[in-house]
Write a protein that binds this DNA or RNA. Structure first.
Lengths: 252, 252
DNA sequence: CACAATACGGTACGGCGTACGGAGTCACAA
DNA sequence: TTGTGACTCCGTACGCCGTACCGTATTGTG
């Protein structure tokens, strides 16, 4: 996809283009941020840009490519995010990798629609490659083989993406109307009717301990809990990697 | 969603129903397995079941609910998978949790479309709850608080889901035609033109080491590598949890 | 100044989910 | 026994979607 890199022959003959790919992608990202990925329809996007629907196809071959561009765009945001944090973090691989994971997480928080794209496939866009490079650099020179480095970043990226994905729905539920309160009471009434303490002993005990509470109302309380869960898991992941790193450095 | 639990008033007045929800969900899952989630369209599904398109709405209120049912269905498969493995594994929390993760992984391998559903939200279906119960039970009684148990399973589930999601595209690419070979040579030619060794030093070195090779052809080689990466990350995750468990058990 | 190349965008096609309403089928009350 | 109302099945249609096609307007070049 040479569009991503902004290369390719530029025409001289015809009329000027009234838009730029950049503006289109910006508008698309804004639309997705505001109203979700489904809102990014060619007609709606064109309307937002005040052009005809089909005009967009002058800039972009199809919607799939547009989504690719959107993804590489938000990777770019992540890059600036990383350099902003990099000033403080110079503590070693752990803090570097942690910063990377947190930048990833911030991206998912800012752009929840990313998890809904049909798999952040290897787009090979400039920003994606830059992020990947930075991630590899974070675990470079600490005694791991190349394959291990690859596996480690897959691990971290997988974890962050997985939690983000798992959490997206909770956030999404919050955004639907249905007045939140009603939904939960209805739901839990349903659960009560069906929940069998004998079949689910551990869950029952944990519910009694209040582990599953705190979901109704209280938006930022919920957000806080999500963040806590994320941080907790991240520490475990990094601990696990630390075990490997220590092993490699003593065995050698 | 009382459909999931098979409760609710059953009518006596009208004609018999010619289908069952079970048959519909089975067909839908088969369709998704064979041709992907997009192939599960109400008309196509109805055609496969040899009924009119709108008849399905007698059984299911809408497509979203159908997808929920499909998800709880594959959770059910996972359950049988788990009891099959449980005979061997009785080594402690680690092997229990490992078995859970592997069952999850097997589900994603058997039903790649699961990662494409709009967030495996808390459906609260019977099978999902059973799986959750089993997962909680795996980490029960090892010295963790309720919240920690929750965070641990979020961690594991997030990791597995994340890697499955990250991997889905590679698998998907393999299934598209475009003759695989051409795609890669074209892609890498593109990359060569654009890849700047100065901007991406670490990636360049790793590429030279051959870390990124092995992607063309060789389907089961690739599958093997994916599995290796998954297993590797899983070990790290479990190591990280082990650190926590050890800490809790000595501090106490 | 003519011409070729390009941008713009209206119309239209096939596909999606599903609202609506009519026709046929069955259990039960009268 | 028969009427009635609940229920199933499903054809039609509506409003979305992505996008193929093509006419028209605009531009730089020979």
């Amino acid at each position: 996809m040479e569009l991503l890199w902004g290369i390719g022959p530029k025409p001289t003959r015809g009329p000027k283009q009234g838009l730029t790919i950049e503006r289109i992608v910006d508008a698309a990202v804004a639309l997705a941020d505001a109203e979700g990925l489904d809102a990014v329809a060619m007609r709606r996007l064109a309307e937002a840009l005040e052009v005809g629907a089909m005009s967009l196809y002058t800039y972009v071959p199809g919607k799939a490519e547009l989504v690719d561009l959107m993804l590489d765009r938000v990777y770019g945001d992540q890059l600036t995010d990383m350099v902003a944090r990099s000033g403080a973090g110079d503590g070693g691989w752990r803090s570097r990798l942690e910063a990377r994971a947190r930048a990833d997480w911030a991206m998912y928080e800012r752009h929840p629609w990313v998890v809904r794209t049909a798999g952040p496939r290897p787009i090979l866009g400039p920003n994606e490659l830059a992020v990947q490079e930075a991630t590899y650099a974070a675990v470079d020179g600490i005694g791991l083989t190349g394959h291990e480095m690859g596996a480690v970043i897959t691990l971290v990226a997988g974890y962050v993406g997985g939690v983000a994905r798992g959490i997206a729905e909770v956030r999404a539920e919050g955004e639907t109307q249905t007045s939140e309160e009603d939904w939960w009471t209805e739901r839990s009434a349903m659960l009560d009717r069906v929940f069998d303490a004998d079949r689910f002993p551990v869950s029952t005990r944990l519910a009694a301990e209040g582990v599953f509470d705190g979901a109704p109302d209280a938006e930022d309380y919920l957000a806080n809990e999500i963040r806590t869960t994320f941080e907790f898991g991240l520490e475990r992941v990094l601990d696990g990697i630390a075990v490997l790193v220590a092993e490699r450095n003593t065995t050698t």
